[in-house]
Amino acid sequence: MTDIAAPILSLRGISKSYGGVDAVCGIDLDLHRGDVLAICGDNGAGKSSLIKIISGAQPPTAGTMTLRGEPVRFRSPHDALQKGVATIYQDLALAPRLSIAENVFMGAELTRRLGPIQLLDKARMRAEARRYLSRLSVDIPDTRRPVQRLSGGQRQAVAISRALRWDAEIIIMDEPTAALGVRETAQVLQLVRSLKADGRTVILISHNMRDVVALASRVVVLSRGRKVVDRPIDGLEPDDLSHMIMNGAERPAVAAAS
């Protein structure tokens, strides 16, 4: 084992309880650079609680996180973002009536100083926004367009571009295809592949087993707050995954094969 194999993010014994009820319990997890890790589980299995902890929205009740070998605590989603862990929220993330460039650079505007005043560098923001989008293989020539005029897939690309703007190494996508049609889903899957090609690490939460099998390199299954499966995706079929989620364990035949 060399340093290259050292995980970018490690969780040890992460637990979260709400008033005595354990939402997640003693989760150990290692995330490696370039992984696309799918976190699966039925409703109430603890996916959202785990994601809230990793994204900085909630502190764990117990356990530790290590980011790039250093112990880390996230005070807020923005704190996590600054440390390179970005979460793509479904509906909350974008200001629909603002332009693509304004959305990509929201809270992290490019400016020129004029004495004490920070003037917006709009031309550079427009050009850079276009560049981020093209890195995701999305071509929108006019980044002054309001986000509400974009397709669902293009909006996801805008939200991801904002993560790239912060140079996030780990990008958490919570049900990225949930509300999308077939073509837009294909666009979003392509976005995830582009991120992987760009050397980013992705955590994917999805109910869609076909998406998971198509994209993920590894899968973790949660059941009643505990990690019951953690394995490479190789050879798994959507049915195997559904089975794991419903039974809270690997299917014996698959387990034997792996």
Binding site: P77, L92, E102, E109, Q118, L120
Partner: peptide
């Protein structure tokens, strides 16, 4: 139109939650 503060005011008014999550 031209300052960072103004852009952040607009973002706050247009989508407060998104602005907050972006660290504004």
């Amino acid at each position: 139109k031209w300052t960072r503060t103004g852009a952040r005011m607009v973002a706050t008014g247009e989508a407060e939650e998104a602005a907050r999550l972006s660290g504004i």
